[in-house]
Simulated scan of single mutants.
Amino acid sequence: MSGKQMLTQIEGIIIYRNFVEDLPYNPLLKTLTKEKRKLGILSEVLFWKQVRNRTFHNIDFDRQRIIGNYIVDFYVKTLGLVIEIDGFNHDLKQEYDLERTKFLESLGLKVFRITDWDVKHNFSVVMKELEDFIVENYS
């Protein structure tokens, strides 16, 4: 036994826990996090409705999670997985996104990016790509 703990299965493939401990946290962002949740960006709300309450392979997702000086769209603590939904304004923030991704990865996290457009227009494809990403990185 390798000591790895099973989290779930996706299409019969075992997915193992990858809990990343002691993530940095900036408490000054807490108010902004609550505001972002209330804002209810459509693609985030659509995604949240599909994954909340462990409805996606019994995996627990957090919404608007503070990690360091960033607020990530979604976080799966049992996997150390960040899910970011990029709107059209991300085209103008590529340098910022790259810096942010490098920081998150330096903590041992994996980052899965999807576009706002795909969430609204290709949702089943987005969810299949997320499954594939999880299988590829955590099985």
Rank of each mutant, 00 (worst) to 15 (best):
S2V: 11
I10D: 01
I13S: 07
F19N: 10
V20H: 00
E21T: 12
E21C: 09
D22T: 06
D22M: 12
L23F: 12
P27M: 06
K34D: 12
K38Q: 09
L42N: 12
L42P: 11
W48A: 10
I59E: 06
F61S: 04
D62S: 07
D62F: 04
D62A: 08
Q64W: 06
Q64R: 03
R65Q: 12
I66F: 07
I67F: 11
G68Y: 15
Y70G: 08
Y70S: 05
I71Y: 10
D73N: 02
K77C: 12
K77A: 11
L79V: 02
L81S: 00
I83F: 05
D86H: 13
F88K: 09
N89R: 13
L92Y: 11
Y96V: 07
Y96Q: 15
R100A: 07
R100T: 06
T101D: 10
T101E: 12
K102F: 09
F103Y: 03
L104M: 09
G108C: 07
G108A: 07
L109A: 08
K110L: 04
I114E: 14
T115L: 07
W117F: 15
V119P: 02
K120T: 13
F123M: 12
S124M: 13
V125N: 08
V126K: 11
E131D: 15
D132Q: 11
E136V: 03
N137W: 00
Y138T: 03
